[in-house]
Amino acid sequence: MRTLVEVVACRGPGGRTVLPVVRAGGQYAVRRTGPGTVHLVATAFGPLGGDDVTVRLVVEEGARLCVRSVAAAVALPSRGAARPSVQRIRATVAGELDLAPEPTVVAARARHVAELEAELGPDGVLTAAEQVLLGRRGEEPGRWTGTTRVVRAGRPLLHTTVDLGPGAPAWLPPVAPRAYASTVHTGSDERPVATGEDAVRLPLPGGWTATAWGTELHRVAGAVAGLTAPERETA
């Protein structure tokens, strides 16, 4: 199934964010849940192998958009050929985008590909969080491949692909985690390096990228939160 989601956020009268475009089809619906906030709602089981979702987000100067989802997505294997499910997020950000969907769970034998490509204007602010769990409870892990590319004014700030799960060439014991979480921020809050147990925060121009991995998702998410909490300083 092919799905296209589009949201455009602009600065409206009085400086409030308005959303002139909120569109979705295929396996997602989009709900406005607050001023400048939308929730993605899955309308079908999955994603299944072969499903292809593109989310286009445009945040114009002076606008602020928050994107959430209502529940964890469970990526399931396709019945026939072993095709991955794909979710592509393409964001153009002159204002401020805060992207924090619920976790993605990749079921046994499933393969999920997640891409985030963000093009930032000179003053664009981006915060993008992702949480991944390979395999449901008591199940073999699936495979997740996540690519993040953040470009500001034509210059790449961050471009990484993390490939986890059986078959990923660098997912090898003794460090082959089932749970992974990462948050990238750029635009308003530069921070130095910090390290923790199976967690690391690295500086970006005007921001940082924090990553943690381990066995249990709640611990991993907690480790990232520990590295990114506003009051916490350094290492």
Binding site: T147, R149, H159, T160, T161, V162, D163, A170, V175, S182, V193, T195, D198, A199, V200, L202, T211, W213
Partner: peptide, 18 residues
Amino acid sequence: VPAAADPLLDLLAEVHAA
């Protein structure tokens, strides 16, 4: 030009540098 990353190597490098 791939972008394959290993956060473990990042962590090890930063702990080592300190």
